[in-house]
Simulated scan of single mutants.
Amino acid sequence: MSDLLGVAVLGAGHMGADHIRRLDRVVSGARVAAVADPDVERAKRAVAGIPGARVHAEAEAALDAPGVEAVLIASPGPAHEEALLAAFARGLPVLCEKPMVPGSRGALRIVEAEVRLGRRLAQIGFMRRYDAEYGRLKAVLDEGRLGRPLMLHCVHRNVSSPPDFTSAMLIDSSVAHEIDAARWLLGEELTAVTVVRPRSSGRAPEGLLDPQFVLFETAGGALVDVEVFVNCGFGYQVRCEAVCEAGSARIGEGHGMLVTSAGGAREEVAQDYLVRFADAYDREVQAWVEAVRRGRVTGPSAWDGYAASAVAEAGVRAQESGVRTTVDLAPRPALYA
């Protein structure tokens, strides 16, 4: 391995461009060796000023570019399965943004392919595990001094939804983060999901059922509720409260600057997930680079990516049917024990 880990970034959109910047300016021990995006001009803009970064229209060309030793996938979700399998075929370690693969069948194919390899190559981009507040909450729950967790109350709000955002995407795109966070915080699989909703907000585009209320049940008998509201209009907010037998712990209350003037006070509210979780993304990519340079892959696994897709899929069915829906998970391979 070279002195700097050569990374191919697949996708130069909003998320991909931010990762390109992060690898070039923030993370130590890595460099951008290649970028692939069907919009070549967008890719060129993303790597402007980065010496030695090659631009390609096709993902496989970037994987085969000189100096590429690892892959960061930030392309749209439907392209992830092909990119992951191509990286596996080349023995390249991967950091793949969520969703690993949008559907559970495709996600299971990734798990099965990695099991055939006999070693982990994929880390999935559930960056909340690297957020300082989530880390403290996880530590408190693992210590056990608050007793067993009984409930998690979660809030996930966005200023507005992007064009073509669908009602199903509130579950399989937005709530996917809460799905993984709940599994990680509680150490339990989610086994059933119910989705109910109030009247839609007047801010929601026509046809979008927003907000929604999602209730998960866990294998150990805990409950997880999520308010997801992607057109709240005022800011990006993520909160989580764990209610345990002997106390509770809450995160996500304040991240912006508090401005006091003219007899009043105003607290800034983040407008974007790249602002709220900037430090978590930095920690995530730095940890991935350091692990790969040691010949390891750690962090959220392909199994975590599959489980999130399977739970989200059940959530979309619950959304459509209006009834409680069970989650169907395949047996967990020993590779992910």
Rank of each mutant, 00 (worst) to 15 (best):
A62D: 02
L63D: 09
L63W: 07
D64H: 13
D64T: 05
P66M: 02
G67D: 03
G67R: 02
G67E: 02
G67F: 03
V68Y: 07
V68D: 08
E69D: 07
I73T: 09
I73N: 12
I73H: 02
A74E: 11
A74C: 14
S75F: 01
A83E: 15
A83D: 15
L84W: 09
L85P: 12
L85M: 10
A87H: 06
F88Y: 14
R90Y: 10
G91L: 06
L92Q: 07
V94L: 06
V94S: 08
L95R: 09
C96L: 06
C96I: 10
E97G: 08
M100A: 14
V101R: 06
G103L: 15
R105T: 15
R105P: 06
A107N: 09
L108N: 00
L108D: 03
E112C: 03
A113W: 00
E114D: 04
E114G: 03
V115L: 07
R116S: 15
L117E: 09
R119W: 11
R119I: 08
L121R: 05
L121P: 04
A122D: 08
A122R: 08
Q123M: 15
Q123F: 01
I124N: 04
M127I: 14
R128D: 05
R129M: 10
Y130F: 13
A132R: 13
A132C: 04
Y134D: 05
Y134T: 09
Y134A: 08
G135L: 05
G135K: 04
R136C: 12
K138T: 04
A139P: 00
A139H: 00
A139G: 06
A139N: 05
L141G: 08
L141R: 06
L146R: 01
L146K: 00
P149L: 01
L152Q: 01
V155T: 13
V155C: 02
N158M: 12
N158W: 15
V159M: 02
V159K: 00
P162C: 03
P162G: 01
T166V: 08
T166I: 10
S167M: 09
A168S: 15
A168K: 12
A168T: 08
A168G: 10
M169I: 10
I171H: 10
I171C: 11
I171D: 10
D172Q: 14
S173C: 13
S174G: 10
A176I: 13
H177Y: 07
E178D: 11
E178V: 11
I179T: 12
I179V: 15
D180P: 01
D180A: 04
D180G: 02
A181W: 04
W184N: 04
L185Q: 01
L185N: 05
L186N: 00
G187M: 05
E188I: 05
V196G: 04
R197S: 12
S201E: 00
S201K: 00
G202H: 03
R203Y: 02
R203Q: 09
A204T: 01
A204F: 07
